[in-house]
Amino acid sequence: QKAKEEADAQATLLAEQEAKEEADAKENAISNPTDALAVSMQTISKSTEASKTVQNELLKQFDDIVAIKDQDLRDMKEENDLSDQGITVQPKPFKSVTAENNALRAIKADLDNVIKARSEKIDELNKLYEERVAIGSLALDEVTLFYKKEIKRLQSEQLKANEAKSQLDIKLEAIQVATEFEKRRRIKRAAFTSEDDRYSQDRAKLKNLRETTKLAETPFKSEDFDFGEAQGNSIKILKNINHIESGFYLIIAVHGDVKSRDEFITKVIASGRTNVDFFHDVNTSKYYIYYDKVDNISSANKALEAKGNRPYNGKMSIVKIENQ
């Protein structure tokens, strides 16, 4: 019995030793190739492993920037939502979006290049593998079998890398679209606020001009007035003008700057017309000065015909306001 146990132990030891020697031989054949094809395959395989590290790092950097932009979008949306509710929030610290976008472009370009180069190397490795398989004596040796598995692993890795990049591209595009929408929300809100501020300032200025302007001692002539932008004889239509009713307005001047507007209004008031008024068209950034408004075109034409020879009426025209 003892002799049998010793024989079994010896056989097991011998089998383990043979298995180890066989494994070492396989490892040696793979690690120390002797034929030209195997040597080339080993070189390319090592190259793909090195580029994998770079590729993964660039994917991580891409993912990090996408995450930052996603958070920026969330912050902007929250700020807009709260502002719509009349809640003021602390502005975020300034950061250079240009620098961030430049970094993103560089990362994407580097990533595209690495993925392309690595994919080409894997294709090259696969071609060498196919050449080696075609050699009958090498078709099923350890080197060929190893690279069969190795190529499948590399191709799988590259497929996952491409999918990861595609998903990040899709997510980034969605973030960019949503960010532009939130920017427009912010701009629209800012424009609304600034237009309201402008209206308040304009009303205060008009009130001041009416209260402080005295009648001119010497009557003004038509040439004393700067009528601004010529309007022609056709009826102009302006849509959605804030702080003013729809209707037909008898416009006596159109100016693009406050100074010219106020100088014209001052002379009109000094001429005795104290009910002169104006409105602002945000679309053209023009001030339309008037003193009469009617509800229909017939009344507007009659008023135009009856404008008389007052010096400030020299360029009178009709503007129709259509508010929704």
Rank of each mutant, 00 (worst) to 15 (best):
D72Y: 07
E217H: 13
L250Q: 14
D70Y: 07
D169A: 05
N242D: 09
I30T: 04
N313P: 04
I68L: 14
T144E: 12
A7R: 11
A117E: 13
Q71N: 10
N233P: 02
V133S: 03
I68M: 11
D262G: 01
F278R: 06
L138D: 02
S137R: 08
A50H: 07
G232I: 10
D81H: 08
K165N: 04
I122V: 13
D84K: 13
M316W: 04
E79C: 07
I107P: 01
V258A: 10
G308H: 06
D262P: 01
Y312D: 04
A117F: 08
Q71V: 14
R132C: 00
T284Y: 13
T274Y: 01
T274W: 01
I65H: 02
D224I: 05
D257R: 09
K52R: 14
Q10A: 14
K2E: 12
V97Q: 12
I289F: 01
A191K: 09
Y287G: 02
K315Q: 13
R261K: 10
A103E: 14
E21W: 05
D292E: 14
Q10T: 10
R273D: 14
L111C: 07
A270M: 11
V282K: 11
V268G: 02
E322W: 03
A303H: 02
E150H: 15
A50T: 09
N32S: 12
S194M: 14
K116M: 15
E21A: 14
A36Y: 11
D292G: 12
R153M: 05
E229V: 13
K214H: 10
G256Q: 08
V39G: 04
F264M: 00
K188P: 05
K121Y: 03
A204M: 11
L59G: 03
D8E: 14
K207C: 07
I265F: 01
Y288L: 05
N32D: 10
K239R: 09
A36C: 06
K188L: 10
Q61F: 03
N102K: 08
S299M: 05
E78I: 04
T213N: 02
Q167H: 09
S317C: 05
Y199N: 11
K307S: 10
F248P: 00
N283S: 15
I115V: 11
R210P: 00
K77H: 03
E124W: 03
I175G: 00
T144K: 07
R273Y: 15
I44C: 00
A38C: 07
S200K: 14
